[in-house]
Design a protein around this nucleic acid. Structure first.
Lengths: 124, 124, 124, 124
DNA sequence: GTGGTCTAGACCACA
DNA sequence: GTGGTCTAGACCACA
């Protein structure tokens, strides 16, 4: 995995794991990979993974069972709420950034459509 | 100005100044505010502003004239290119993040439209 | 049984068993539940129970008879002393903690009375 | 400072600092000692102090200012709430522990009064 | 095997 | 000077 050096790594790991949950790679109740395994896979220190996990535990998305591992919450309402929240955050940030570049609302939507169309061509 | 504490401040200042240029607050050839003034306005240390400026100079967007101050480049093609580049970066990142949240292309566009509509209501 | 995850589980098990003895669930000379049974009841690993028992044996509160099991000491003076000691420890800690929160002696007593009164209402 | 080795050190540091705030050693808006200084004073690693601080920041009791230090919140309502919460937690735990030792409500109150009286003699 | 805590030490961003 | 992040490595509690 590639990390953006402008943002803390633990923060990116947290987002990465959230994405895994929201896209069904990690289903509710599923066991997360062992912390040490994640550290190896992401070529990152164990403590860094732990910090990401710690925040997810505090947020109620992950529960830790002593000696057994970390597990995705089975509270699907909580997961749905997380998805909603992350989506809104992304939309808000993207909109504000593009708006700041002096694009009108219509230009922003048009730009996005165009981007997706182009991308489609490249990836097909 | 509000700073996101997950991203280096100098980096956010750079973006802020780019935006000023692209939205016409700072026209080609215009003199940038004095570094010390910027530091005061942004309630930030002088060193931090200096770092942001340094990167803009390296990128050829700002030229520094000894004893006179810093100026926006008069190379309008360079500015247009910058806008294009920043726009694409934003679109790409937004798309990838939302895609990672398991939204389809259509859902992303619909979500953005909806976000803009909602926002319009709030701000009108 | 609920465990406080800030304190070692073996330590909490030890306290739990002491309480059983002091409240008469486990009388002097009584046989303790089998280690494996305790582990199941407390949903805890056998090793963890064993560790708690080990410390109680060292403290002279429990005696182990090979092949027969573990038994509460018949030394009632020892048990009385244990109760006295645990009570004082609790009082001391509670007092110090509340004192550290800037409560006066009178406020501490008043607070405790109030807490008990409230609790009585809830549980009646 | 003496640490109880049954509870995480960062946890005890957090409580220690909370107490400092509630007893007026650290007033609202006051600057906390530098992290490195705290680490030296408490003969503990910098990271351990930072972990305690991190939780206080998340809880909204402390705010961090880049390059300047950490400060007690000026939100006195938040501080009052914290005191209330910590007091209740202490009372609840003390009560339950003593209750578990087979003391009646009256015995608990009497025991506390007696403890305070004894203590008064010792300390006068 | 699995997570939790802590240390020593380094490097960076910011004032 | 002051805080934030990360690493390497150790030791412990628990299953």
């Amino acid at each position: 995995m590639q990390f953006d050096d402008k943002v803390p790594i633990y923060y990116q790991i947290k987002n990465y794991l959230y994405h895994e949950m929201l896209t069904g790679q990690l289903t509710p109740g599923a066991k997360l990979p062992a912390i040490r395994q994640l550290a190896v896979d992401l070529t990152v220190n164990v403590n860094t993974v732990q910090r990401a996990l710690g925040e997810m535990i505090t947020a109620g998305i992950v529960t830790s069972k002593r000696g057994k591992g970390n597990f995705v919450t089975t509270d699907t309402a909580r997961l749905a709420q997380l998805k909603e929240q992350l989506t809104m955050e992304q939309l808000e940030r993207a909109y504000e950034q593009l708006h700041a570049l002096n694009l009108t609302d219509d230009e922003i939507i048009a730009g996005l459509k165009q981007y997706i169309a182009q991308r489609g061509q490249q990836h097909d």
